[in-house]
């Protein structure tokens, strides 16, 4: 039947329930298992093939050699990264992994270059 205020019963019911708003900094929702957050780099596994650099759509990762002994460091530009985790898929040795960390904002730009050794 047509009458104005069709949604009224639902509205009154909703008012009785607690709000669905998540009060973010105080209250957090569960982060799903496969969440694509900040990338973690495992220097022990890296062979320096630079496949991640080739496939990164945002040029957000840089692998550099440090020292003679096939040791590498990775720089992640967190401001460039689009968190697609393609580097994780591209890495042949599984040296890269997604972490659930997502609160990466910073006041200083240079702090957004995350160097992992």
């Amino acid at each position: 039947m047509k009458y104005p205020g069709k949604i009224l019963p639902e509205v009154l019911k909703t008012a009785m329930k607690p709000p669905v708003t998540v009060r973010y900094p105080y209250e957090r929702t569960e982060i799903p298992e496969g969440f694509r957050g900040k990338i973690h780099f495992d220097a022990k596994l890296c062979i320096g093939c630079k496949m991640c650099m080739r496939d990164c759509p945002a040029k957000a990762v840089e692998i550099e050699k440090i020292g003679e002994d096939k040791v590498f460091k990775a720089t992640f530009y967190l401001d460039h990264c689009i968190y697609c985790a393609q580097c994780v898929d591209s890495c042949p040795k599984k040296a890269l992994a997604s972490t659930p960390e997502f609160e990466l904002a910073h006041y200083q730009r240079d702090k957004l270059a995350d160097i992992q050794k």
Partner: peptide, 11 residues
């Protein structure tokens, strides 16, 4: 506040 609570918001 009431408007928000009717809409399941915090207000």
């Amino acid at each position: 506040k009431l408007y928000a609570r009717f809409q399941s918001r915090l207000g």
